[in-house]
Write a protein that binds this DNA or RNA. Structure first.
Lengths: 319, 319
DNA sequence: AGCCTTTACGACAACGTTGTCAAGATCTCG
DNA sequence: CGAGATCTTGACAACGTTGTCGTAAAGGCT
């Protein structure tokens, strides 16, 4: 339509030098009139560096507030740099994790940003060996030397449990997710450290770790509260479990009697009665940092994003 | 490595007939050993139908619970069918909307699933004219004959406002988003219909529509409650505004005095005091339906997903 | 004017696949 | 045992770009 070779179009579109301004204008006009967009598949295929300007993001659940905000953080950075983002949720299903990793690799993503399960080590190693960039968020795996963004789960939990201990609590329940989840292990470790640091022995009957016990968090909380010598405080190791605890405590009229601190902030935590004290993460920042590491060829190492204890009432109930 | 031509590899990988089982095994072994994955860019480039098994999803905010769940619904269906999903949030910024649409078109998505702004008509028309599949969710545009998934915003709102009227309320505040948002217009229309249907004239001083008024929802709620003759009930036209209303009412100690019904369900709505009555949508179903329409070449028309009034207490406070 | 440099373009190969076609090997059946 | 059918495989073009190179035209210098 502009009466030039397709190579000249390529030059104009990519802003390469060596095209007269008259021809440039003609090409631009024709491109606008036709709604021409370069075919990204062909571009990626031909480019020397093979870059596709695409990330693959693989998280547990894009419907969960924490991961949704993490995704927003990735998006924010990606959009600025013209990178498109594939997303998918695993729901902790390893088959899906493998399948989606393969799907992203087939689509030649420039980087895979993922919160891996413990089992992911093997296939991630292959992905890395093929020279594809991998960035880990929220969770990590031994022996994988890739840029990683984490929080100090043990430290955050220690802060929370110390906070409860300082208010006189000795019997503090722990409600955590399956220990096969990296964050869950760190949080349990922090709980144990805090208690032993204060000279309190860990009472296994106050500990619920999903997958070990088999029962649901709700049943576990009920069980703890039904003990002859029930806990005076609860630490919950994830937002969903925290909300479950709030629900159970409310239904039993114990909201103002049993202290509660949860890991992860969530919407409306301040509007509940009492407000829920939490160890907050900054998932948007975690995501943004991960995306920057994915874009920076020199990016490496483990980056810790700090957590913050937010007092809202539930964690300040004395023993 | 398997000692065959690359065409034979293609046959094995795609399960085409006419390859002996011995060769198939050799190829599979070699592929496994090398971690070979077909290059999706090359495949898409060469395929007769040009399919990329990729969707582009463009919503307002993946961090908002409604859109996050909508995205999950899309993901659920997409994964089943081997489709990868690009996601991006516009935050109502039209420049981003255009930019990301172009980015998805360049990447040859099989379908663009989007909640369009009013301004998107022009560029979407071009995208459709180029033969690319477009599916609208949550919002629609006149003169775009594409598969669409909506809820009946006016009906849902009428149900909510009728519910308040049935409990004796006559002065019912309306707190909505910018009328440039499709859903916001339908919800306001439903509010007006319900009131006039009950013989109540709409009092403009009880109506806040962001963008018209200029002020924030929080300021608007404060203003309404400060009126000499304040509303006895509020209808809030979106989850974020509902949460703001809960916050203001709580701070003023009016939670048990002023009735409240909100559009959109949200987490913890049942754990607030009182529980928040809402007109709930089923965003996951909306997303799943949209994805199915995107995959089905025969999919067309406007599909309405029903809303449901969930009574939790705040909407049952009498005048 | 004659030569060299620069500018502005096009021709062509290549990226890694799939679709088409051809050809050799093997099987079937009278 | 031979002719035809079928089965298995490879050669080659093509998808829409980018990178390399060639070349005609224009410009600069002596």
């Amino acid at each position: 339509m502009a009466g030039v070779s397709f190579k000249t179009v390529s030059r104009v579109v990519n802003g390469e030098p060596g095209v007269s301004s008259a021809v440039t204008d003609r090409v631009r006009e024709a491109a606008a009139a036709l709604g021409y967009r370069p075919n990204a598949a062909a571009t990626a295929l031909r480019r020397a560096d093979g870059r596709t300007a695409t990330f693959g993001v693989l998280l547990e659940d894009a419907g969960n507030h924490f991961f949704a905000m993490l995704l927003r953080g990735i998006e924010d950075v990606a959009r600025e740099r013209g990178v498109a983002v594939f997303t998918s949720s695993t729901d902790l299903d390893f088959a899906r994790e493998r399948e989606m990793t393969a799907a992203y690799v087939a689509r030649q993503v420039d980087a895979l940003i993922t919160a891996p399960s413990d089992s992911a080590g093997e296939h991630l190693r292959r992905v890395i060996a093929q020279g594809r960039r991998v960035v880990l968020v929220d969770r990590t795996l031994d022996g994988l030397d890739v840029p990683t963004v984490l929080v100090d789960n043990a430290l955050g939990t220690r802060t929370a449990v110390d906070h409860l201990i300082a208010r006189g609590h000795r019997r503090i329940g722990f409600l955590g997710r399956d220990p096969s989840i990296y964050t869950s292990r760190g949080r349990y470790a922090g709980y144990v450290e805090a208690l032993t640091g204060a000279g309190i022995t860990v009472d296994p009957s106050l500990v619920h770790r999903e997958g070990f016990t088999g029962s649901s968090p709700r049943a576990a909380i009920e069980r703890l509260l039904d003990l002859p010598d029930p806990p005076t405080a609860l630490f919950t190791g994830q937002d969903v479990i925290t909300m479950t605890a709030v629900s159970v405590l409310q239904r039993r009229g114990l909201s103002d009697r049993v202290a509660l601190v949860g890991f992860d902030d969530f919407e409306l935590a301040d509007l509940l009665q009492p407000g829920v004290t939490v160890v907050a993460q900054d998932p948007r920042r975690i995501g943004a940092l991960a995306a920057e590491l994915a874009l920076d060829p020199a990016g490496s190492g483990v980056h810790l994003v700090p957590t913050q204890l937010i007092e809202r009432g539930s964690g300040e109930i004395p023993a």
